[in-house]
Write a protein that binds this DNA or RNA. Sequence first.
DNA 1: ACCTGAACACCGTTCAAGT
DNA 2: ACCTGAACACCGTTCAAGT
Lengths: 220, 220
Amino acid sequence: MARPTSAALKPRKSPRQARSTVTVEAIHTAAIQVLLTDGVGRLTTTRVAERAGVSVGTMYQYYPHKEALMFAIIRAHVGSIIDSMMAAADRLSGQTLARISDGLVAAWLDLKTEDLAGSRATYGLAAEFDISDVTRRESERLARALEDLLRSARDAVPADPQAAAFMLIAVMGGAVRNVLEQGAQAEEIAILRAELPRVCRAYLASGSRAANEPAMLTPA
Amino acid sequence: MARPTSAALKPRKSPRQARSTVTVEAIHTAAIQVLLTDGVGRLTTTRVAERAGVSVGTMYQYYPHKEALMFAIIRAHVGSIIDSMMAAADRLSGQTLARISDGLVAAWLDLKTEDLAGSRATYGLAAEFDISDVTRRESERLARALEDLLRSARDAVPADPQAAAFMLIAVMGGAVRNVLEQGAQAEEIAILRAELPRVCRAYLASGSRAANEPAMLTPA
DNA sequence: ACCTGAACACCGTTCAAGT
DNA sequence: ACCTGAACACCGTTCAAGT
């Protein structure tokens, strides 16, 4: 399978009429439904088209191939998660490093465990199709936001905020994924919830310098 | 796709004659070759059989389905990596917590980056087929060894060695996977190599109590 | 401008027939 | 005891024909 470029993964054409917009959305939601109820293994073009109430041919008018459809689903899912994280980052701006760290980890764990089925389905898609483009771009978007957030910390700032933001994402994202993919036992999630905040807090504290003039900063 | 039980994934029959042992190995190595040269997308039963110099029918005599073959490959790959980690754990036994932590992270990073193609191919298989059974079992095997290793630390021991071992695996494994899957840029691997040891060391130091009678322990 | 669905190439899997 | 490969069901994708 030659890796298609990002451009090739976009919908073939933009809907110009109302009814085709409806069609595109129907296909999109049908795909998510099939994914969640039947699993990745049973997600076939025929089944999605049937569920959406259109023919396969119509599907191919908007998504040049199955991968493009999966790509669209992932993009929406990952995008909304990153959006939530950006909002959390906004709320945490200007707080202490420990609070920032705890807040990020809590937000991430909430997002991933709230919709366990969705998260696991996404992980399933993530490797079956080569979606590293989406995840990479979204990761970078979040990384920039976290870098600013870390710089805003009231009490201390990591020596290398860019590296720290990168690592936070890799560690939070990776650890949670590792656990969820391996069955996501309640007991394991509990350990994660207790220990992951400590991992991130200790890391950030270990490589930070006290902020220059803490008293001069306006508390948020 | 009903999730097959672990038993169903094992080779259908054990080879009883010399030539069939050769056949099984030929299929196994052919599959790895196809995987590495052509990618997961082009790994078809026909291609593997052709490369191995047998017919498809013969393949199905030893592997009840394609998934069983993938399962065998993953098991061997993951198993050898865990074996290497166990050996590293052995060498680190009785050292300080910081040395243990650094040693584990270095060993893990070496293993994963030495054979980049193999690692990435494995990640690719990992989600396409449901191999959580293998990875879970191997993770637990390593977790037990790491728990003992942490207890052996000369200077300090984590308050909850079991949780700490679990987290080390989740964090190391997840962070490295996250980075490798997203393209594994040299610069990103460099950050990982510099920062991941700090993540783990800070975490372990933050939740440890000084060993009871450090002077009484025999240095390894 | 959009939709249909039979047709095509290819894949995983089986099994009657061979040695 | 082991191997072969045509045959089958199913999948992703296309395109001539419709409205």
